[in-house]
């Protein structure tokens, strides 16, 4: 393997891992705040991608602009999802609540897939936006402009999220609930509302990642659950509740897929799970788990 190819593989892995990390952040935030493993997370990504495609097909507007426009809708969907499906489980015993939440979100995921499937009846099943930006070539290393733009937007979103969590009362309240729910409650934080807000923000991140996905590759009604599994790998590998861990986990999996896929594409998808097992054997709480 030449040096150029090796550099290109690393670049590709980082670009790929960045998009993985964005959606995984949403899943991690929801889990950190509410303790719910939202198995419908990938479906919100799929839904976001489908909405962006639909709007693009109707209007021809820039898909990144359309992705920004669907963000409030995604927030509302996530907020209502928590209020309608997750909140009613709150009064149950811890282990019952966790098991119920997994079943409820899995059921919701399957239902959302079926709805998307049904709504696709009169259009093509797989949706992809035709957008191409000229590739930048630096000393034989190809830097796909589209992926760079996406990575830039991912970093901007993550920075925005970081600032929100560190600088705003609501963000601090989210962090407080993540660290100690009872303590936050005793300090006057409305933990019920914070749960819903975390679901809203997490869903926005998933839907935005879906917008990026439909530009970069494609979305289809059945992509949700496999993606959720991959994001779960990332957040478990990074350490549950750790944003730095999610970022690193995303990049490790992106790099792993890129390098293994180069030699043997058939193993590219399996590498996420192999890496997860390897890291958990060394650090059972994940890279940044406490």
């Amino acid at each position: 393997m030449s040096v150029t190819i090796a550099v290109q593989l690393v670049v590709n892995g980082i670009l790929l891992g960045g998009v993985y990390a964005l959606a995984a952040f949403g899943l991690s935030l929801i889990f950190g705040v509410s303790g719910v493993l939202n198995l419908a997370h990938g479906e919100f990504l799929m839904g976001g991608g489908l909405l962006v495609w639909l709007a693009w097909d109707l209007t021809g507007l820039n898909p990144f602009l359309l992705t920004a426009m669907i963000a409030p809708l995604a927030f509302g969907a996530g907020y209502l999802f928590e209020k309608g499906l997750i909140r009613p489980l709150a009064q149950r015993k811890e282990h019952v609540r966790l098991a119920s939440a997994v079943l409820v979100t899995l059921g919701a995921a399957l239902m959302m897939e079926d709805i998307a499937d049904f709504l696709s009846l009169n259009t093509q099943y797989e949706k992809s936006v035709d957008l191409f930006l000229p590739t930048i070539v630096l000393d034989k290393v190809y830097l796909p402009s589209l992926k760079l733009v996406i990575l830039g937007l991912v970093l901007a979103l993550i920075a925005g999220l970081f600032l929100f969590l560190k600088r705003t009362y609501l963000g601090l309240a989210v962090q407080a609930v993540t660290q100690n729910r009872r303590g936050a409650l005793l300090n006057g934080v409305n933990t019920v509302r914070i749960n819903a807000i975390a679901f809203g923000i997490g869903t926005v991140l998933a839907a935005v990642a879906g917008g990026f996905e439909v530009v970069d590759t494609y979305v289809a009604p059945n992509i949700g659950l496999p993606l959720t599994l991959k994001y779960l790998c990332i957040i478990v590998m990074g350490g549950l509740g750790s944003f730095a861990g999610v970022a690193l986990g995303g990049i490790i999996i992106g790099l792993g897929e890129a390098i293994v896929g180069f030699f043997q594409p058939a193993w590219g998808q399996t590498v996420a799970f192999l890496l997860l097992v390897a890291i958990l054997l060394i650090r059972p709480k994940g890279l940044f788990g406490r």
Binding site: N12, Y218, P226, A258, G261, P265, A266, G268
Partner: peptide, 20 residues
């Protein structure tokens, strides 16, 4: 001459291997 899994979405490594 390779096969890649049905759920592959990122082909950048395959493309690079072909480019080589």
């Amino acid at each position: 001459d390779k096969l890649a899994p049905a759920n592959t979405k990122d082909f950048s490594s395959v493309v690079l291997a072909m480019k080589e």
